[in-house]
Nucleic acid binder design. Structure first.
Length: 548
DNA sequence: AAATCCCGCCAAATG
DNA sequence: CATTTGGCGGGATTT
């Protein structure tokens, strides 16, 4: 049902992009829907002289409005019928963000757990009229926020925002334990330094301050917070492939949750997310790719109204960034460490890891049947067991109705938690269980159970080695100059969504400070997120609300 | 020119 | 082996 096209946007399936491959991801494509202007997709081509990519077709269609397209147009006409050229399809209309919006519109924020919140990939793809691939993108980040969970092969289960608060709470905590705040500062500083380094030493060297080798462990793991998803076998969850999107998304969110002005610039985020080997590898490309992903993630986060696009302006110019506009308060996280399981697993992984994971040679031992099998089964078993205790699905955390989660973006001076210099400290300080901190040794994928407080069911955090920063403490303070030097510009206060601009301090532009002086000055602010004063107020920030 | 980011190839992961 | 997932990056679009 549903003609597919919603609104007025003439979502014309201009020729299905399908390439030569006749069997690729095709599947549910060919929307036979399309009432009037149809045109299935010209199957053939290949040898054709026309390198017409779908894009060029679009371009062509657009140009059709102007007088000069002839032959090509003609050819196209033979295959398709045009939509009202008046409103030509633009890239915007095909954005992930919009797609995500459409997707979200199909489900309630707070679904009734007793109902069939099943999501069928094919249906969605078909109904939204998009390629499957795109749905995966959305699902992946939604999954990272536990708004959905894979229930079976082509299936996902919708959870909406029911678990969002809890998830964010965990992400924030984990982010704090990893001292992401500090890392960000460090990177900002580094970038800043490089900035007006009015000269030389380009190359790709890293700094003198390199942590280097960090063996492997390093408490800078990667993790993927997993949800108690029904006791289905589903499992899914692990696989070291769980790198990227899912994990990246969680990390990205974490960055927001631990940074004080809840603003994260793309480059900084990308740098941190790159983690792992940052040394001699081709950073350039890697960075670019990372940024692309970040945009993808950001788009859905934006659809979720969790972040907004802004710009931070430093002396050097504007940088794209995003600001958190989602919930600011979350339920406390509780959990318990499962040493036993944890350790056993850890050792296994270590073996594997040490066995063939040398920096350069990224032997994807992902393939190693035995190891993987083992790890998997263990995890599966564990998860199976986990879902048993406590009250299953029901008894939502109650707390606040998901809806009410959105408070004013205005972040008041609420010093977010005191900083712990060592994860251990923080851990100790934490009430009951709380997230487990995995000291060195354990490297890849270390499942940790986080028995959730009432009713929730346990959460598991999968840790995975990530990058440098072997010894957290003992690190020269990162300095926060970078932050200080930033300026958020507030452009046209109003925000499209009617929300009012969060904070937007006048900003005294930091221009008065000599860059060089600043640069050389680095030495202040010790801790990260809440060193009494120091960077506290970074009023010289100017945020550029992106009008969209 | 820089910022965005769509598109879809094609390799893992799965069944 | 067929499919399902989903890295990844070229290059088109927007800003």
């Amino acid at each position: 049902s549903n003609p597919g096209i919603n609104e007025q946007s003439p979502q014309v399936p201009v020729n299905t992009p399908k390439k030569v491959s006749g069997q690729r991801a095709v599947s549910a494509e060919n929307r036979p829907t399309m009432g009037p202007l149809t045109t299935p997709k010209k199957g053939r081509e290949v040898g054709s002289v026309d390198p017409w990519t779908p894009t060029s077709n679009l371009k062509m269609l657009i140009s059709a409005a102007s007088p000069d397209i002839r032959n090509r147009e003609k050819e196209l006409q033979e295959h398709f019928s045009y939509p009202p050229l008046s409103k030509m399809i633009s890239r915007k209309e095909k954005s992930l963000g919009l797609l995500c919006h459409k997707f979200l519109a199909r489900y309630p924020d707070c679904p009734n757990p007793a109902l069939n919140n099943d999501i069928c990939l094919d249906d969605v793809a078909t109904e939204l009229n998009v390629e499957r691939r795109r749905i995966y993108d959305i699902m992946n980040v939604l999954e990272s926020l536990h708004m959905v969970s894979r229930s079976a092969k082509n299936r996902y289960t919708w959870h909406g925002r029911t678990k969002l608060a809890q998830t964010l709470a965990i992400l924030k905590q984990v982010g704090e334990e990893h001292r992401y705040g500090q890392q960000m500062q460090q990177i900002r500083q580094r970038l800043l330094d490089k900035e007006f380094d009015f000269d030389e030493e380009e190359k790709e060297n890293k700094e003198m301050v390199v942590d280097l080798e960090s063996g492997e462990q390093g408490q800078r793991e990667l993790f993927f917070v997993e949800l108690p998803g029904v006791e289905f076998k589903a499992a899914s969850v692990n696989s070291r492939k769980d790198k990227s999107l899912r994990v990246m998304s969680q990390k990205f969110v974490m960055l927001f949750l631990v940074s004080n002005p809840r603003v994260v610039s793309l480059d900084v985020a990308a740098k941190i997310l790159i983690g792992e080997d940052q040394g001699a590898d081709q950073d350039k490309n890697k960075f670019k790719t990372k940024v692309r992903r970040l945009y993808d993630i950001a788009n859905v986060l934006r659809s979720l109204k969790l972040i907004e696009k802004v710009h931070v302006t430093e002396e050097r110019g504007r940088k794209p960034a995003f600001e958190w506009v989602g919930p600011e308060e979350f339920p406390q996280v509780k959990g318990i460490t499962r040493k036993s399981v944890l350790e056993s697993r850890g050792s296994v992984d270590n073996c594997a890891k040490n066995l063939f994971s040398s920096p350069g040679a990224k032997r994807s031992f992902t393939r190693h049947p035995s190891l993987i099998k083992l790890a998997k089964s263990i995890q599966d078993d564990r998860r199976k067991i986990n879902s048993a205790p406590s009250s299953p699905p029901t008894s939502s955390i109650s707390k606040e109705p998901p809806q009410a989660l959105f408070l004013t973006p205005t972040h008041e001076p609420r010093a977010n938690t005191t900083v712990h210099l060592t994860p251990h400290t923080s851990l100790a300080a934490l009430p009951a269980g709380s997230v487990a901190y995995i000291p060195a040794q354990c490297s890849s994928l270390i499942p940790v159970l986080l028995p959730q407080q009432r009713g929730g069911g346990p959460y598991a955090v999968y840790l995975q080695p990530s990058s440098p920063r072997p010894n957290p403490l003992a690190r020269p303070q990162p300095t926060s100059l970078a932050v200080r030097s930033m300026t958020f510009e507030d452009k046209t206060g109003q925000s499209p969504t009617g929300q009012f601009a969060p904070k937007s301090q006048p900003a005294s532009r930091a221009s008065d400070v000599s860059p060089l002086a600043l640069k050389r000055l680095r030495s202040d602010s010790a801790s990260e997120s809440s060193p009494s004063k120091a960077k506290r107020a970074d009023p010289n920030f100017k945020v550029n609300k992106h009008p969209e």
